[in-house]
Nucleic acid binder design. Structure first.
Lengths: 271, 271
DNA sequence: CGCGAGATTGACTCGGGTCAATAGTAGTGG
DNA sequence: CCACTACTATTGACCCGAGTCAATCTCGCG
């Protein structure tokens, strides 16, 4: 039933795991080209980059560790090499909102750029490894490595725009549609990383999903159950099988049925 | 009753209005220093910038004109010199979401950076004037004007982060709290521009506000009425007077009342 | 003056929040 | 190894807030 191993090592061989399978606090490093690849830039763009040049350290974090805290002074951007995280926005009253669930290739910490301190908090959902990109180093070394700076900014723009789109557009949808949309986008991201897009292991709790979508954990649970009852997915705790991706996609639309009669409609249409 | 004149010229003297008060389609230009000031960077940072250097053209738009369309190929960033606009995100089904209401000093169009075409649409709510910053020019001239490029990126980060925060945090609040929060942040922005923060003229419709906050226009209207009934604001169409800013702020919190009894509570607490 | 877009207000309905009870799962320590 | 515990998830019952539909009002503009 285990969908995928979330801690699966990336394809290259930079890992360092001790005999018990535990992650060690070793520091390894990545070149600008490694970063470019990880961030998903095209090969042509990356080939222009000199292989020699600045190196960026890696850092490992255990489950539930904080990468940085709200208000902490901003020093570095992070690129995920493996593992899963969440970034959280807190308001003064303490209730929180999950902005994103970064995974391999995603960028963290850019919300600190504008006022030199992090405006969010980032927490490891699984053991994970991040590449540390000190912002000052980025600005100074980029004199010679201009490509890097521009790559980073393009990546920032992409991250923010995507997060924006995701959160914003779903807000007008019903709970089931939001959850369906969430699963779909997660599946796409998994697929892009080479994981299965049919068998998904959710690294986050229902509460986290709720905080991300603007729903309560109960509603998320009910929505998953409803999608399961409709035969579109199968749910067993954090293991999700996507049985009918095309119906999942249909579910996103606000059910543009005539719906003038007294039919119950709603979630039973697919039952 | 007119709160402020939205078309008020900025304090410097770069405007060009014909004898009838109409805006002319003249092109004027701004230096890097002008841009820096407009974007709100500190004087010390700006003083380092050579006054000579690249110049950026201005462009005027009439009410309801589109600055750029969704899908259009990305060429320029825009900085608002005066006037009010809205940026809109549309999904495939056509329903829209208002992401932001840019005004003087705000930046537009950065969502096009990541895939070279605009992912949003930007529409003038009033006549307005924008400074055009061609992205290619930014990248190439920035060899010598590195400050400019970095300023722009900091500004982008700030815009996106703020928009993010605004939309995200309000989603857990009740409608009245959302509207109160919206008014408060608008008042702050007005104040920062030197306008009155007590007498506000909303440049957008109730529908726009609703699309921004994830509410319907009726709910926005009701929320405004409720705030008015509580004596916190006075509403006359698009003219809003903020009578008790501190209560407006209190309203933001989810009303942490004991509320165990059968008191009606809700919007009448302040009546 | 009359038209139409925008705004307000009311009545009704229902989706999702809240509270609560239960069950499944993982981790801990004797 | 198993029992205890704490966390996570599921499901039900209830109720309130906001969406929907609709009528009316106001204002600006031709």
């Amino acid at each position: 039933m285990h969908a995928i191993k979330l801690e699966d090592a990336p394809s290259d061989s930079l890992n360092n795991v001790d005999p018990l399978g535990r992650l060690q606090q070793v520091k390894l490093s990545s070149s600008v080209r490694d970063l470019g690849k990880l961030l998903g830039f095209s090969h042509s763009k990356i080939r222009e980059i000199n292989e020699l040049g600045p190196q960026f350290h890696h850092r490992r974090f255990k489950t539930d560790e904080r990468i940085y805290r709200l208000g902490q002074s901003f020093e570095s951007l992070y690129v995920v090499r493996f593992g899963f995280l969440k970034t959280v926005l807190r308001n003064s009253e303490g209730d929180e909102r999950v902005l994103s669930f970064p995974m391999k290739g995603n960028l963290l910490g850019f919300d600190g750029i504008c006022d030199n301190r992090y405006g969010t908090e980032s927490i490891a959902l699984t053991d994970c490894e991040l590449i540390v990109v000190p912002f000052k180093k980025l600005l100074t070394t980029a004199q010679s490595y201009r490509e890097l700076e521009q790559m980073m900014y393009v990546a920032i723009s992409r991250e923010l725009t995507e997060a924006h789109t995701g959160i914003s557009l779903s807000s007008s949808l019903k709970s089931e549609a939001r959850v369906a949309h969430f699963l779909e986008s997660l599946a796409k991201r998994y697929a892009a990383l080479g994981y299965s897009s049919k068998e998904i292991l959710l690294p986050m709790t229902r509460r986290d999903i709720g905080c991300h979508l603007g729903l309560t954990l109960e509603t998320v649970s009910r929505a998953l159950s409803a999608l399961a009852a409709a035969g579109i997915i199968a749910v067993h705790r954090k293991n999700i099988q996507i049985l009918k991706p095309e119906l999942l996609h249909l579910f996103k639309t606000p059910l543009a049925l005539p719906q003038r009669n007294n039919q119950p409609a709603g979630s039973l249409v697919f039952a």
